[in-house]
Design a protein around this nucleic acid. Sequence first.
DNA 1: AATAATACTTACCTCGAGGTAACTGGCGAA
DNA 2: TTCGCCAGTTACCTCGAGGTAAGTATTATT
Lengths: 125, 125
Amino acid sequence: MKDNSEKKHAFPNCSIRHILDRFGDKWSILIISILGHVGKQRFNELNQQIGDISQKMLTVTLRSLEADGLVSRKLYPEIPPRVEYELTDLGRSLLPHIEQLALWAEKNMECILANRAKYAQKKVG
Amino acid sequence: MKDNSEKKHAFPNCSIRHILDRFGDKWSILIISILGHVGKQRFNELNQQIGDISQKMLTVTLRSLEADGLVSRKLYPEIPPRVEYELTDLGRSLLPHIEQLALWAEKNMECILANRAKYAQKKVG
DNA sequence: AATAATACTTACCTCGAGGTAACTGGCGAA
DNA sequence: TTCGCCAGTTACCTCGAGGTAAGTATTATT
């Protein structure tokens, strides 16, 4: 009997791990927060806003956000084509929590970087 | 004149990207949340709590959290050695925001998974 | 003399997230 | 007839996060 089941982790880890699994990638959270700030955006607008994302990852990330129901995609069958992305209600409900984190980062990132520098010093000196 | 500077991204992206850079890895947030729940923990206790982390990544992650000043490390020079990890005030200040996210996940993850399944269906059918 | 216990460290390897660059389709403009 | 626009798609490649397994130091125990 190899009981490699039912004992993994008893904590609210579950939801945290879900969060990390789905939003721990490089672009999802950023895109959500941009759409939250500026509202509707077209593909190339997002591309320019972010600046250093590849077309491939922009489509991949948008598709997965769409699949999760966090972002809506509206295609206008014109030529050249126009596509508009926008947060859904679900996506919008996530925004405030992200912004809390961002706020925390703004307040504390300097301190963290200072700590890290000090720690690196200790290792050397 | 190649002006590849000063135009990257004008948004509060900055703090969000900082967050993702430092906490977007597989274990940091989880360890912070565990230490937040149970308080002081020894190395092997953490190892067992998490269940599926490797020793290597546990040390690596703890070191980086320590370097950032989010977690404190107390070594008791006994034999065999004893080490206790605990959140610092800075680490503790991050907790509520993480828990907000976790709460959001608990409420909405089911919906997200349902959306994803429906989306996959559409692709097939 | 061998084993156990703790908290690692080290060498080695895998795998997939993400990047790059070129191509697509349909139309209008030069 | 070739180019440009928009929103992708595709093939290919890199690189590093993270896993595995074995080794380290020290002492007490059997």
